[in-house]
């Protein structure tokens, strides 16, 4: 995966309001923008903007049903986001494990010399 794709994904989910929208979609399945607007403390206009960003990042898909447009989460893309996050965490776990090993060896060595 390229850094550019990562950035778009981070950008989409890094915003607390968008996470709120995403959260509602995750727990309620397919819903309309009006329904979402009734469940968040920001405007319908803001909801629409957030949905556009989420859609561009591939996290949300839309479908027309009669006069309504319904939105739902793309589980695969969301899964990708959680994996990216887990990868970054795993990278730091490896670094911390190495720091631990080096520091403990240095400390043991210093104690021996005492």
């Amino acid at each position: 995966m390229t850094a550019e794709v990562d950035d778009q994904l981070w950008s989409a989910v890094g915003d607390p309001s968008r996470r709120r929208v995403l959260d509602l979609l995750v727990s309620n399945g397919e819903v309309s923008a009006s329904w979402l607007a009734g469940h968040v403390p920001f405007s319908r206009q803001a909801v629409s903007k957030h949905l556009v960003v989420l859609e561009e990042a591939g996290l949300v898909t839309r479908r027309k049903q009669g006069k309504e447009v319904l939105y739902q989460v793309d589980a695969r893309r969301l899964d990708q986001a959680t994996h990216l996050m887990a990868d970054l965490a795993a990278r730091w776990d490896r670094r911390l494990a190495t720091i631990k090993r080096i520091a403990e060896a240095a400390h043991a060595e210093a104690k021996k010399r005492r």
Binding site: A89, W92, A103, E104, A106, H107
Partner: peptide, 9 residues
């Protein structure tokens, strides 16, 4: 990303 480790040093 927040991680921590306990080090014996």
């Amino acid at each position: 990303i927040e991680r921590e480790v306990l080090i014996e040093a």
